[in-house]
Nucleic acid binder design. Structure first.
Lengths: 212, 212
DNA sequence: ACCTGTGAAGCATTTCACAGCT
DNA sequence: AGCTGTGAAATGCTTCACAGGT
């Protein structure tokens, strides 16, 4: 839906799995493991070995037959493929509890996501530190984006505010958006948009609960 | 992966879409719309009409040829199919910023998700109100679950704490878990498990950003 | 004229199964 | 003997296209 060029052929379903492989591999790396087989990794992330070999094969041949994969090498390769061998500038729009929770979760700074700014409309929080330096007024959104090469905007506002703000960040040139507001957001074609939706998750659980 | 019986045949991909149809339909309902065609609904949620008709057809025939769907009727039908014609008891484990954000988001109470308790290990927050009445000690987890018929446990703890707590709620009989901790959690077969993962979302964005 | 419901076609993803390397 | 890489088969999902009803 949102790829291009060289990776025309990588299944969309593969991409999120790569990040899970990476997480597990980094754990193995921290424990000093040097080698891992597709079976071991599959058991650890809950899939099957063929899935892993197929996913990796879209990018090249990284394993050694009879042995498995070199953990360090594969970590490096996955980081490169996932675009983690550089840094990305992230802003959070909405400095409520959720925005603050995400800002304080410093786990992703390690992977190269650089939280450069946080925005809100509420006069009372502007200027305060919610985990990303002083919260800025939404009035400064466009000028800040212009000046700071923002790659990712995370939306954590109430539902009503979300779509107009997405339109604004997109118009200002931000190429990707992660939306936590409970709406089905939309954005023009070249923009990469992902949505995280609590009520959809809960309803999906209740659908299956109801069937037992 | 986690269905049974009657619904053996409903694609997993259909279920989250039903919740999006429902949200749009409830908006239409609020605006007084009486009828909607698959094309209108498809445009509104960003899919195509055949998808909607196919999704609905798994549950029955709710439309009128030449006319479309009765909005009220379809809202009722979707709520029933999604298990929203009853209420579900939810607990949140972890009363940090994220847990509190979810507790304060009262949007889902309207849909029948009933937040009955919130748990933490930190002595300093136990007893305080974080949006769901007094925060309880994690020591009371099993007895609370026993006494309160808990259907859904939402995990918002740090990574290290998550898997053992999931094991505990599952052992105590909670049939479904929504995990926000950044781990690939696992749970035995009859349990319904869904995961929301910020770092996977960010990495998926950066994968596609990198290709432009 | 318009719109649903649905077989069948088309497309995407997963899994199998085995040749080939260490 | 063990494990990767990959065509091919199997499965799952989406879209087409049209018969049938209003």
């Amino acid at each position: 839906m949102s790829q291009s060029r060289r990776n025309e052929s990588i299944p969309e379903a593969t991409v999120p799995r790569l990040s899970q492989y990476l997480r597990k591999l980094q754990q193995l790396q921290a424990r000093g493991a040097e080698t891992v087989s597709s079976r071991q990794l599959a058991d650890a992330v809950g899939t099957n070995p063929a899935q892993i070999r197929k996913d990796l094969s879209y990018f090249g041949e990284f394993g050694t037959r009879g042995v498995g994969y070199d953990v360090n090498l594969l970590v490096g390769e996955l980081r490169k493929q996932l675009g983690l061998d550089r840094s990305w500038n992230v802003i959070i729009i909405g400095s409520g509890k959720l925005g603050t929770a995400l800002a304080l979760y410093r786990g992703f700074e390690k992977q190269g996501f650089n939280l450069v700014g946080m925005f809100d409309t509420d006069e009372r929080v502007i200027g305060r530190d919610r985990g990303a330096g002083p919260v800025l007024s939404i009035d400064e959104l466009e000028s800040f984006i212009e000046a700071n090469d923002v790659h990712i905007a995370i939306i954590t506002t109430p539902a009503e505010a979300a779509q107009p703000l997405i339109d604004r960040v997109v118009a200002a040139g931000v190429p990707s958006v992660l939306n936590f507001a409970p709406i089905r957001a939309s954005a023009g074609e070249p923009v990469i948009l992902r949505q995280v939706d609590l009520s959809t998750e809960l309803m999906t659980l209740s659908f299956y609960l109801d069937k037992d």
